[in-house]
C-alpha cells in the first residue's frame, strides 16, 4: 500500500544510510544512536507538519519532542508489514498536533489570529530540496483536482485542525455533507496521488 512513501523516501536515501524501518527496529531495542539518526532523518518533516498545524514555533517544538518520545516508547509497536516508518511517524505527528489544538486554547486563539487558511500558504521554494518540492507540487496539483468544497473541508480539518463538526459549523453546511466531502475528497486525492494497496 505504501508505494508512494517508499518511492519518495528512496529519493533522499541516496547514500547507504540505514532505512527508517531499520532504525526504528533498532530503536525498539533501546538503541539511542539509532534514535538520534532517525531523528536527524525525519525531525524536519515532523516539525514542518506540526508547525503547519500549530503555527507557533515554540509550541510546535514542544509537541515535536512529545512525538519523538512517543516514538522511543512505542517503537516496538511499529509493524513494518502495515506500512512504512515515515507513514507511522507522520500519522503520529499529525494526531499529536491535533490533540494539542483540541486540548488547549491554542487552537481557538490561533484561529482568531490567522483566520482560515488552505493549502496555498506561503511556501519557501528556495530552501527546499528538489524532492521536497516535487512532493509539494504533486500534492498541490492533486488538491487542485478536488472541488472547491472538498478542498476546503479537507484543508480545514487536516491543516487547521477543525473537527468535522467544526467544519460543518464554519462552512454552514450539514454534518453529513462534510463527512461526504472529506471522504470523497480524500478518495480523489488517493487516486490522484496513486496511493493504493
Amino acid at each position: 500500500m505504501l508505494d508512494l512513501m517508499t518511492a519518495e523516501f528512496n529519493l533522499d536515501a541516496a547514500s547507504t544510510a540505514p532505512s527508517k524501518e531499520e532504525l526504528l527496529a533498532r530503536v525498539a531495542g533501546g538503541d539511542e544512536a539509532a534514535f538520534g539518526e532517525l531523528y536527524d532523518q525525519i525531525a524536519p518533516r515532523v516539525l514542518g507538519l506540526v508547525k503547519r498545524v500549530l503555527i507557533d514555533h515554540a509550541q510546535s517544538e514542544e509537541v515535536t519532542q512529545e512525538i519523538f518520545l512517543e516514538i522511543w516508547q512505542t517503537a516496538s509497536r511499529y509493524e513494518s508489514q502495515r506500512g512504512g516508518a515515515s507513514t507511522w511517524i507522520m500519522t503520529m505527528a499529525h494526531r499529536r498536533a491535533i490533540d494539542r489544538i483540541r486540548s488547549s486554547q491554542a487552537g481557538r486563539e490561533r484561529d482568531t489570529k490567522i483566520g482560515i487558511r488552505d493549502l496555498a500558504v506561503p511556501y519557501d521554494h528556495v530552501a527546499e530540496t528538489v524532492e521536497v518540492r516535487i512532493e509539494h507540487e504533486r500534492v498541490e496539483k492533486a488538491m487542485s483536482r478536488l472541488t472547491e468544497l472538498q478542498r476546503q473541508a479537507v484543508s480545514l480539518s487536516y491543516f487547521s485542525g477543525y473537527s468535522h463538526r467544526e467544519v460543518a459549523e464554519f462552512l454552514h453546511i450539514p454534518l453529513g455533507t462534510v463527512k461526504t466531502r472529506l471522504r470523497d475528497g480524500l478518495i480523489r486525492l488517493r487516486d490522484e496521488l496513486g496511493v493504493a494497496s
Binding site: L4, M5, E8, P44, R45, L47, G48, L49, K51, R52, S86, T87, M90, T91, A93, H94, L119, Y123, D124, A127, E128, V132, E135, H136, R138, V139, E140, V154, Y158, F159, L189, L193, V195
Partner: peptide, 9 residues
C-alpha cells in the same frame, strides 16, 4: 500522510 509531507520542512 502525503498531505503531511507536503508541508515545508
Amino acid at each position: 500522510v502525503a498531505l503531511g509531507l507536503s508541508a515545508a520542512p
